[in-house]
Simulated scan of single mutants.
Amino acid sequence: MTNQLLLIDGVLRQDATKWIYQSGEPLEVIPLYLGTRWEELQELGPILVALDAWSPLLGAIQHDNALQSQASLISTQAPSTTVAEHLSQFISITDDLGSQSLLRFADPLVTWHWLASYPEQAYKSLLGPISQWNVAVRPPNWAPSTPWEWRAFRPQPDSPTLAHPLSHMTQSQVEALDQAHRWRFKERLYDWLDHDFPNTLRPLAEDARGRWLEQRIQDAETWGLVSERSIAIWLERCAYWGSDFATRPDSPYQEWLRRKPVAQQLPPELRIQALDDDCLTS
């Protein structure tokens, strides 16, 4: 018999436990941080929910985009406790540099990037008792509107065992998680620009907005900016003064440099933040 399990990200659905119990269904709920040193944060961690075959949540995860962005669907022949024990191996992960961090593998965006970074031969070890892990792949908010698609990850028979522990990530996984982080950062920037500076993106064709956003981020990084705050300041100046504000001779930025010559000696991060501080007080 195949069991269906919902894996919810407690950060994205912060009322998850209350919401589940309010459904009135006799559901088994397993917060994966339970029994770990992060137990006090169990409602913000990954939460595994065993669903009955007639559970309305099965229909909800198939059709509700909001829920699909917060949870994924796992099929298994094993008991839910066995799946929970297997998934708990991914809570704390290391990389090739020896860094240790928490992996938000219940966040569907992270799940998709993370699992897709492995070759298919790795899924037998990676998925363990899971027979299929279904993740809804959503289009980013800066891209043309397209339907959501389901991506199914399945173990491949006769695959070799992974050469490293499941809790260790190689460079491919690190890069995949960086891509997921950049995706989410770009979405936050897009929402902010669309709300505060609607004349910046909305006049562009739908398929050109993502390119404009990515190019501005790349410009900021080429200029030497690395922090999210500084990149956001750069985009704000682009919205106010134009995409070429840093190089155009008659831009307010060049006028500011003439008034504050000492700013030219500052590294890019400090310079853009000093510019922002002056803009806020002027």
Rank of each mutant, 00 (worst) to 15 (best):
M1G: 12
N3V: 04
N3Q: 13
Q4N: 14
L6P: 01
L7K: 02
I8N: 01
D9T: 02
R13F: 04
Q14M: 06
D15I: 07
D15Q: 14
Y21H: 15
L27E: 02
V29F: 01
I30A: 08
L32R: 00
E40I: 08
E40G: 06
L41H: 11
G45Q: 00
P46I: 05
W54Q: 15
G59Q: 13
H63T: 11
N65I: 10
A71T: 03
S72R: 01
S75I: 02
A78K: 04
A78P: 02
P79R: 12
T81D: 13
L87N: 01
S88D: 11
Q89W: 05
I91C: 05
D96I: 09
L103M: 10
A106K: 00
A106S: 15
W114R: 01
S117Y: 05
E120L: 11
A122N: 05
K124S: 15
S125L: 08
L126V: 06
P129M: 10
A143P: 00
S145P: 03
W148M: 07
W150R: 13
W150E: 12
R151E: 08
F153A: 02
Q156D: 05
Q156T: 12
S159R: 04
S159Y: 05
M169D: 04
S172Y: 10
A176E: 09
A176D: 11
D178G: 06
K186C: 06
L193F: 06
D196W: 05
P198F: 05
N199K: 12
N199C: 08
T200F: 06
R202N: 15
E206W: 07
D207Q: 14
R209P: 03
G210V: 00
E214D: 13
E214V: 07
I217W: 05
I217K: 02
E221I: 09
G224I: 09
E228T: 13
R229I: 11
Y240C: 10
W241Y: 11
G242D: 08
E255F: 07
W256V: 01
L257H: 09
R259D: 11
V262K: 13
V262M: 11
L266T: 03
P268T: 09
E269M: 03
R271S: 06
Q273L: 12
D278H: 14
T281D: 12
S282F: 08
